[in-house]
Design a binder for these strands. Structure first.
Lengths: 241, 241
DNA sequence: ATTTTAAATCATCTCAAAGATAATAAATGT
DNA sequence: ACATTTATTATCTTTGAGATGATTTAAAAT
């Protein structure tokens, strides 16, 4: 499956399977969105055992580092992106989850804009984007992590507007719909979707149109973060779309 | 605040603040329900520093132990209860959260029936129940954990029937209402509550009545786990009450 | 024994939002 | 000029949440 000879960062060999240390790692489920499909960024595991196998983007948490910082660090390392939407999924803490050493992993999922990331960096690290529906076998419990991240994303998307995180600054309603169709994995009615999504008054209609995907062209919108902030502070219930 | 001399389990002194180990702990936010109020079980922290201060019920995760098992272990140790509803809250992973050593904690909240727990065990461990509204100052970030657990409970209770976990096997509708009023921290209309809660057909009406809290007496019900299971498997949306 | 009382229970009504469907508008390609 | 496709506006129907009125029941008070 992975033939090339390569150097990997690894736990010092003298520690491997012989020490009594508890390791804490974080693995990022990094979602992107492109042409109607959710994508996931993967790379090759850097530590033995299983070095070289497809894996979520992860890293050990350093002793003097916050867990969330570790996730941000590794995400920036591979994609060049900062200030990305990221949220904790859950802890994977089975004693036997990693055959090499005792390591619990904090799963965190991130939503990034495919337009923004640093392609060179990604390439350098051997990372690749996969369609969420067509993932390879991943190391350890990573396939399970992805499954649960998708589930959580689906759930979260119902009560919090985060489809925007996957789109460029400016986007059309149909594009947004397409994101939600990918997340919910079912078709939505364009007319009702528009009605709902606009009813919250957190979208600002721009004067430009996007004509890449239709003859008529659709108006571009942008998300009004300020307005959203004000609404949620007032306890506004976003349980919609 | 805590004057008595006492022995505490602790990290070996030679390791304290000098070793480079990563520790993983779990802290349980243990909820109970009594006479209209949510209660929380607390005990005295067993490790230095801050040994003897009020703390959530917690423990280190052993090297050969699942994180979830650790939580179940400590919960049983203190309350004698097994098979309790427990769910992960989130990870508390700030590098400086514990002044003694580097330790991340997995917060987990549990719902137990106050009728069931082992009072002797609780007493032996110096644990006590506190009204959620009147908690003492807790060690580290534990007050924050409680706050977030309450928030999560409130959210979760909207889409999943878990008020039952806090009540005895048999309960009345008014009792159930009282649980939800405690969770949501607002009064509910008895007539509408009844309508909603019965509309899902997961409650079985018994022939007995409970007369402890009213002259007329209210019928006892029990939760139909099987029926609930079937419904959720079919994708039934419980976004109610 | 009758009345009072407080909860428990049943029955309607109103309103708003969700989903289904119809109709129109704006471009492009033929 | 017309057909075609996507975007957009406008209605209609149904459902369910919340508000409120009315009735039952059994214990306690008179």
């Amino acid at each position: 499956m992975y033939e090339e000879k390569q150097e990997f960062e690894s736990v010092p060999q003298d520690l491997y399977k012989q020490n009594d240390k508890m390791y804490v790692a974080t693995d990022c489920i990094i979602f992107g969105f492109d042409s109607g499909n959710l994508k996931l960024l993967l790379f090759r595991r850097r530590v033995s055992p299983l070095a070289g196998e497809w894996s979520l983007i992860g890293s050990f948490v350093k002793l003097d580092e916050d867990v969330s910082t570790a996730a941000e660090r590794v995400l920036e390392e591979i994609t060049g992106l900062k200030n990305v939407y990221m949220e904790e999924l859950k802890v994977y803490g089975a004693a036997d989850r990693d055959p090499g050493f005792r390591c619990i992993s904090v799963g965190q999922y991130a939503l990034i804009r495919l337009s923004d990331y640093d392609r060179k960096l990604v390439k350098e690290h051997g990372a690749e984007w996969f369609d969420v529906e067509e993932l390879p076998d991943l190391v350890l419990d990573h396939n399970q992590m992805v499954k649960e991240a998708l589930e959580k994303l689906k759930q979260k998307a119902r009560i919090q507007p985060l489809g925007f995180e996957l789109l460029p600054e400016k986007f059309t309603i149909p594009q947004l719909q397409s994101v939600y169709e990918a997340i919910f994995q079912k078709p939505l009615d364009a007319r009702n979707f528009r009605k709902k999504v606009l009813s919250h008054n957190v979208l600002v209609k721009l004067d430009e149109k996007d004509k890449t995907s239709s003859k008529r062209g659709a108006y571009l919108y942008k998300f009004d973060h300020n307005r959203y902030k004000k609404l949620t502070e007032k306890g506004y219930d976003f349980e919609i779309w």
